[in-house]
């Protein structure tokens, strides 16, 4: 009886552990089944590089959305990454204990706030500011980049901070003992040693920005056109799905799933990259 229970429990845990594999497989299979027929029909090249998205006329080109995703994500990274890395250095190196005790929960709260709330705040606060002071419709790449920059901060900050804190104390102490100032030690010893973790945090932050939907629907303006300036409205891959899925049918619905495939592949590459970077780091340490 005892033996039986032992074997059974081991088996059960193994089966439960297979859940994430099977779910990932199901997601991949179902999205591919639904989306690939349309890509096959339109042609992969025309689907990805096509400039016209007119589902009513059966034209499905998502290049403007790809350009939208890339520009908004790039903007978010330009704004969010330096601030995020500064915050992680602040937390790991400069903040007095009492302050980091307040600061960490603040970052957690930042991560927990629903994306629609960020979008809404962007819509009623950031968008009018841009419209009034910089011109254009306000709903723009810039507005989306600012909101996404805020949203990727928790990812960048927490992962960078962990990788800085994980460094052996001797690194910094050695540098200080050689007469470096605190900042010189951070700049020339701490940051280079924590590089892989920091890079991974940036890659994951970029993944988060590429995948965000609801917040950017509210601030991007969602026009399907190649943007000419950061004050132009754009549509991203995610918002294309979010906006049109509600009423899409037939080929149009398939095209949205095909958009999902492109998004899925991009995210898997980004994730794989992040996992690869951190795995390399772990190897180096052992």
């Amino acid at each position: 009886m005892k033996d039986f229970k032992e074997k059974l429990s081991g088996r059960i845990f193994f089966v439960l552990a297979l859940s994430s594999i099977s779910v990932l497989a199901l997601i991949t299979v179902f999205i591919l089944i639904k989306g690939t027929p349309l890509i096959a029909e339109v042609g992969l090249k025309d689907f990805i590089f096509g400039m016209t998205w007119a589902p009513g006329r059966g034209e499905f080109g998502i290049f403007p959305m790809i350009a939208g995703s890339v520009s908004v994500t790039f903007g978010a990274a330009v704004i969010g990454v330096p601030i995020g890395i500064c915050c992680s250095i602040f937390l790991a190196e400069f903040a007095p204990a009492w302050l980091s005790k307040i600061f960490r929960p603040v970052i957690q709260l930042l991560a927990g706030i629903p994306s629609v709330v960020y979008g809404f705040w962007g819509m009623i606060f950031v968008v009018p500011l841009i419209r009034d002071y910089l011109g254009g419709p306000g709903l723009s790449i810039l507005a989306g980049s600012i909101i996404l920059a805020i949203m990727i901060l928790p990812t960048v900050i927490s992962i960078s901070e962990v990788s800085i804190l994980a460094l052996p104390r001797q690194y910094k102490e050695g540098a200080l003992a050689l007469g470096m100032t605190h900042w010189q030690a951070i700049y020339s010893v701490v940051l280079p040693s924590a590089k892989s973790g920091i890079v991974a945090s940036v890659v994951l932050g970029i993944g988060r920005a590429v995948g965000e939907t609801m917040a950017v629907i509210m601030v991007l303006g969602n026009a399907v056109a190649l943007p000419e300036s950061i004050l132009d409205p754009v549509r991203t891959l995610t918002t294309n799905i979010g906006i049109e899925m509600g009423y899409a049918e037939g080929a149009h619905e398939q095209a949205l799933f095909a958009t999902g495939i492109v998004l899925f592949v991009v995210i898997m590459i980004i994730n794989g990259l992040a996992q690869y970077i951190t795995r390399d780091k772990n190897k180096g340490r052992r």
Partner: peptide, 12 residues
């Protein structure tokens, strides 16, 4: 990988 998949893809 599941942790990184965008919620809209989960929605699909």
């Amino acid at each position: 990988s599941l942790a990184g998949i965008p919620s809209i893809v989960y929605g699909l």
